[in-house]
Design a protein around this nucleic acid. Structure first.
Lengths: 224, 224
DNA sequence: AAACGGATCTTACGTTGTAAGAGAGCGTCA
DNA sequence: TGACGCTCTCTTACAACGTAAGATCCGTTT
C-alpha cells in the first residue's frame, strides 16, 4: 500500500502572523526568533522572508493585530463615558498581550491603527466642545495615561513561576524590616479579598476624567 | 632619549559604569555592546567582565545611577505637595535618560533603589493618614501614573533628525485628510507659544492628586 | 519539451554575549 | 634567587541571531 504524502498547507503572511502572535503570547517577544518561528510552522527560517520583509515587519504585523483589538471612543454617549470605554479597551488589549507595550515604545510604534486612535480621541474631545488648546492638553494627559499606565501595568505581569519567585524574594526582603510599608502592601497583594475588585487603571482614569470634566482650566492655569 | 610609557589608568567598576552611562545617553541602549564599550575605555571587551558579571549586571548598574537621581517624598510639608515634588523628580530623571524606562520595564527593574522608592511613597501616604486599603489603591494609581506616564513620554523623545523626519511624514499624512484632528494637533505641536508651558505630566499628576485629596473614597466606591 | 516563475531551502557572513584559559605583572615566602 | 600564587588583561572560540545571495524544486504556460 502506497501512502500518498499529504501536501502540507502553504505559507502565507496571515498564517505567519497568527503563528507569531500565538508564539509571542506564550513565550514573550524575547523568545521569538525567525528560526523558532519557522520550526513552529514547519518551514525554514528563510522561507518566511517571502512574506515578511524583516523581523521588524513581522513585529509590526502582530502589533497591528493587537491594536485592532482596541476601540476608538464612540460619538454617541456622553464624552467622558465614551473615552472611558475606549480607554479600558486599550488597557485590556495591552494586558492580554503584555509584550505589545514594548513594541509600541520602539520607534516603529506609530502604526496606522495607532494614528487612527490618536485622531479619534482628539476628534471626540473636540466634538465634546473642548476648544483647541484645552483639547491639546486633555489629549496629552489622556493618551499618556492610557498607554503609559497600561504599559506600566504590563511590566508587572508575571508568570506563575515568577509570582512564586517574587513571593519568596518578598518574604526575605520583608523579614529584613528594610521596607516596612512595602511589607504591608505586599501582604495586601497576596491576600484575597474585595480589595482586588478595584482596578487601578480605572480608578486613575476616573480621577482624570472627573478632573477634566470639573476644573481643567483651573488646574491648567495653576500648574505651570 | 627614552620615553617612558604612560601607565594607563586601570579599569574599575565605577569607570565602566560611568562610561556606559555616557555612551547610552549618547547612542541609546541599543547601541551599547561590550566590544564598543571596551573600545571607548581602551580595553578589550572581555576585560570588563572582571568588574561586571554580565551585560545585564552592567545595565543594572547604570539604571541604579539614574534611580539615584530621583527623590523620595519628604516627610515635612503637606503630603500632596511632597508627593508632587518627588514625582516630578522621577519624571525628570527618566526624561534626562530616555533609555532608562525600557530597562525599568525589563524584569530586572526591581532594583534596591526602586524598592526604596516604593516603600517611601507608601510610607508617605500612610503618614498622611490614609488607611491601609485607601493607601493600597492610591499607591497603585500614583506609582502607575508616575512611572507609566514618564515611560510613555520618553518613548516620544526624538532626536533632531527624527523630529524633522516626523515633521515630513506628518506633512504628507495631513495632506491626505485621513487624520484631520491629528493635523490640528500636530500644528499646535510645531507652533511656538505659551501652550508649551503646560507640562502634561504635571497636569495629569495634579488632576490625580486633586482627586485623591477630595474624593478618593467616592470614586473608588463607584468605579468597580 | 522547454521555458518560466513563484515558493522553499541551503549556505554563508557579520555581530552579539560570553566561556575558557593563556599570559603578564606583581608581592610574598622559602 | 627563584618559585609560587593572585590579580588583571587579552586571545581564542562558540553558539545564537538576523538576513543576503543564490540554488533547487515544481506546477503552469507555451
Amino acid at each position: 500500500m502506497v501512502t500518498v504524502a499529504e501536501p502540507r498547507p502553504g505559507l502565507n503572511r496571515e498564517r505567519i502572523l497568527q503563528a507569531a502572535l500565538a508564539f509571542v503570547d506564550n513565550h514573550g517577544v524575547g523568545g521569538l526568533t525567525m528560526r523558532r518561528l519557522g520550526d513552529e510552522l514547519g518551514f525554514e527560517a528563510m522561507s518566511l522572508y517571502h512574506y515578511v520583509n524583516s523581523k521588524g515587519d513581522l513585529l509590526d504585523g502582530i502589533l497591528d493585530l493587537v491594536l485592532d483589538e482596541t476601540e476608538p471612543p464612540v460619538t454617541e454617549r456622553e464624552w467622558a463615558s465614551a473615552v472611558r470605554i475606549s480607554a479600558v479597551s486599550v488597557n485590556q488589549a495591552l494586558r492580554r498581550h503584555p509584550w505589545a507595550g514594548a513594541l509600541l515604545t520602539s520607534s516603529a510604534g506609530l502604526r496606522p491603527a495607532r494614528l487612527r486612535y490618536m485622531d479619534s480621541l482628539l476628534g471626540r474631545l473636540r466634538q465634546a466642545g473642548f476648544p483647541a488648546d484645552v483639547t491639546y492638553h486633555a489629549y496629552h494627559v489622556l493618551d499618556g495615561f492610557i498607554f503609559g499606565f497600561s504599559l506600566w501595568q504590563t511590566t508587572h505581569t508575571y508568570t506563575d513561576e515568577e509570582v512564586t519567585h517574587l513571593a519568596a524574594a518578598f518574604e526575605t526582603a520583608i523579614s529584613s524590616d528594610a521596607y516596612p510599608h512595602l511589607a504591608e502592601h505586599g501582604t495586601q497583594h497576596f491576600q484575597p479579598g474585595p480589595i482586588h475588585e478595584v482596578d487601578p487603571f480605572e480608578l486613575g482614569l476616573d480621577l482624570i476624567l472627573h478632573g477634566l470634566t470639573k476644573d481643567l482650566k483651573t488646574v491648567a492655569r495653576t500648574s505651570s
